[in-house]
Design a protein around this nucleic acid. Structure first.
Length: 559
RNA sequence: GUCCCUGUAGCUCAGAUGGAUAGAGCAUCAGCCUUCUAAGCUGAGGGCCGCACGUUCGAUUCGUGCCAGGGACGCCA
């Protein structure tokens, strides 16, 4: 891999300036930025502006002095042939203009690393757990889960690409009130089938009333082998278990159809059973962070920055959700994860502090627990929002969205906004095969390149993978430069804990490609130029493919 | 009342770590296919970056306070 020009230039800048101006050694302003406007060169430095106070001279004067020094001293370094000009510019910027040759290393890198291009080892194999979706098995997945599924999956892929040891995990809440309600709902529907009488008046607002409950009830009677109401009464537990297993099968199938695969499926009933909870309560009690009040047991989370203390065992002896969750999180740390990332819906926002408090009480760094809130998505059909209400059974399911717009468009649309932004998902737009649809825009670039390769084969033209010389137009250079920032983009995703930047990057990259395509003929008369351009588009194809793969979107060869 | 998110072009949104004339898509208007995929490209118009103050040589970006929209604040999960 070629040394990074920016880093080299930065070092050069620091060395030369601090040697001639010792007071600048304390200055931390040697980063080179990329100007928004190309006419300001490839890189720009603001040292002169920053140095004006220390050296007590006007910025523009300093910029001129600095530029002269840099130009003269670049000659003996490896940067010599690459820097074309160093120019001071008002109000005190120093702009660096580079020769096209400076960028050709990017193409060579891409061909050397192929599908590994962009990956790095910054994660140093640290163990990271990403827990996401974790929807209660009380019904098929909704679009809210779908967004979490895609974002969690893509972020996990990106973490892996930059060198973390990632475990994607789904936590199944197969116990508690919601599951009891589910069991009851199925049992009542089963009773309707056996007795022929409606149980409608027994259904409360909290019971599940979706159509799938009736289907499950019918199947449950068959598979569990229940023929009478007495048997049904006797087999409550089996009915409940049947319901959970049935729905987890549905959920797993949906997720795998959606291209989301988990490494670990963990069950609350196994990790946080009565025995583990008892042990945890004893342990916490030993740490003096529990308190009994009003017949309930409270976790004194205010000691760790929460706004109020939280009940962990209710006065009726049952546990709040926090209790098994504390046990589950201790289990995560026991398994050796150095970073624990949870994706939650916005309704759980208030829950973050108490869980962090618990993690801290258990002796872990609260910063190692990262909770990401993924905002909801509103689905629009024909310009109208499709309303959602979970319990009543009227809500848009992941399955419907997949059926209607396909996996690629669905995944990409969920990634098209920052995770902390509310997302409007327009079904009609996602279905459109038009330029408005960014998925096709990117995939189209990929497919176009494939067809150029076909043409090149017919012409007996080979890919030039090194020794570039002829690429020099703005369209070619813009494309190459953008290809070179792929790994930087992955780092932005990592820092922001959001795969969003990658989705945007791929759109930009596809745009630069399409511009290049329209302006320049690849397979043409000049064979030397043709094979360099062919290499350029194939490098583009590699980066597009690498990016799409991380997002879980397919890379069609033909469209 | 407390906390979180958001406020940028007519609409949907970019502008990570402060920089030079704030960008893209859609919509509107005008163009480009005898040559590698027109699911593409080119051009035009369109802006008190919610408001005020502060920090700074420099603020859409950072801080504080307002205003507006959305959401969360249970011995639910």
């Amino acid at each position: 891999m070629l040394p990074d020009i920016r880093a080299q230039l930065q070092t050069h800048l620091r060395d030369i300036l601090t040697r001639h101006y010792p007071p600048l050694a304390d200055l931390s302003a040697f980063e080179l930025e990329t100007p928004a406007d190309k006419k300001h060169g490839e890189y720009a430095s603001n040292v002169a502006l920053k140095a004006t106070k220390v050296l007590k001279k006007p910025p523009m004067v300093l910029a001129q002095e600095f530029a002269g020094l840099l130009m003269a001293s670049a000659a003996p370094t490896p940067l010599a042939g690459l820097i074309v000009n160093v120019e001071p510019k008002a109000p005190g910027f120093i702009n660096f203009y580079l020769s096209p040759k400076a960028f050709f290393g990017i193409l060579t890198d891409i061909f050397t690393q192929k599908d590994k291009y962009g990956t790095s080892s910054v994660g140093q194999k640290a163990k990271v757990q990403i827990e996401f979706v974790s929807a209660n098995p009380t019904g098929p997945l909704s679009v809210a889960h779908a967004r979490q599924a895609v974002v969690g999956d893509a972020l996990g892929n990106i973490f892996e690409a930059i060198g973390f040891d990632v475990t994607k995990e789904y936590y199944i809440n197969d116990e508690g009130r919601q599951i009891d309600l589910l069991g009851d709902s199925v049992k009542m529907r089963a009773e309707e089938i056996l007795s022929g009488r409606s149980m409608q008046e027994h259904f409360s607002d909290d019971h599940y009333k979706g159509g799938y409950i009736k289907e499950m009830a019918a199947q449950c009677l068959k598979e569990v082998g229940i023929r009478t109401r007495e048997e049904l009464q006797a087999k409550r537990v089996e009915v409940r278990k049947f319901a959970v297993d049935y729905l987890m099968n549905v959920i797993q199938k949906e997720l795998s159809d959606f291209g989301v695969n988990f490494d670990v499926w963990s069950y609350q009933s196994k990790i946080a059973d009565e025995k583990h909870i008892q042990k945890m309560l004893e342990y916490l009690n030993g740490c003096h962070v529990l308190e009994e009040k009003d017949g309930a047991v409270w976790f004194k989370s205010t000691q760790f920055g929460d706004d109020k203390d939280r009940v962990v065992r209710k006065s009726d002896g049952s546990y709040t959700y926090l209790m098994p969750d504390i046990v589950y999180h201790e289990d995560k740390y026991k398994r050796g994860f150095q970073k624990v990332i949870n994706f939650w819906g916005p309704d759980h926002h208030g829950y973050i502090n108490r869980l962090k408090a618990a993690v801290q009480a258990l002796g872990h760094d609260p910063a190692s627990l990262i909770v990401l809130i993924v905002q909801l998505a509103t689905i629009y059909r024909e310009g109208q929002p499709v309303s959602m209400s979970t319990r009543s059974g009227q809500y848009i399911q992941l399955q419907e969205v997949m059926d209607e717009v396909g996996v690629d468009a669905a995944r990409f649309f969920f990634l098209m906004r920052h995770i902390n932004m509310h997302l409007d998902f327009d079904l009609d737009l996602a279905k459109k095969e038009s330029p408005e649809n960014p998925v096709y825009y990117i995939q189209y670039a990929h497919a176009r390149i494939n067809s150029m390769n076909q043409k090149a084969r017919e012409a007996g033209l080979a890919n030039q993978e090194t020794n570039f010389q002829l690429l020099e137009s703005p369209e070619e250079l813009d494309l190459i430069k953008r290809l070179g920032s792929f790994s930087e983009i992955l780092m932005i995703c990592y820092n922001e804990l959001d795969p969003y930047a990658l989705a945007t990057y791929l759109q930009e990259l596809a745009g630069l490609f399409h511009k290049f395509y329209d302006g320049h003929r690849v397979v043409g008369e000049d064979r030397a130029l043709s094979s360099e351009r062919l290499a350029l588009v194939n490098a583009t194809k590699i980066v597009l493919a690498n990016g799409l793969r991380l997002l879980g979107v397919s890379r069609p060869e033909r469209m």
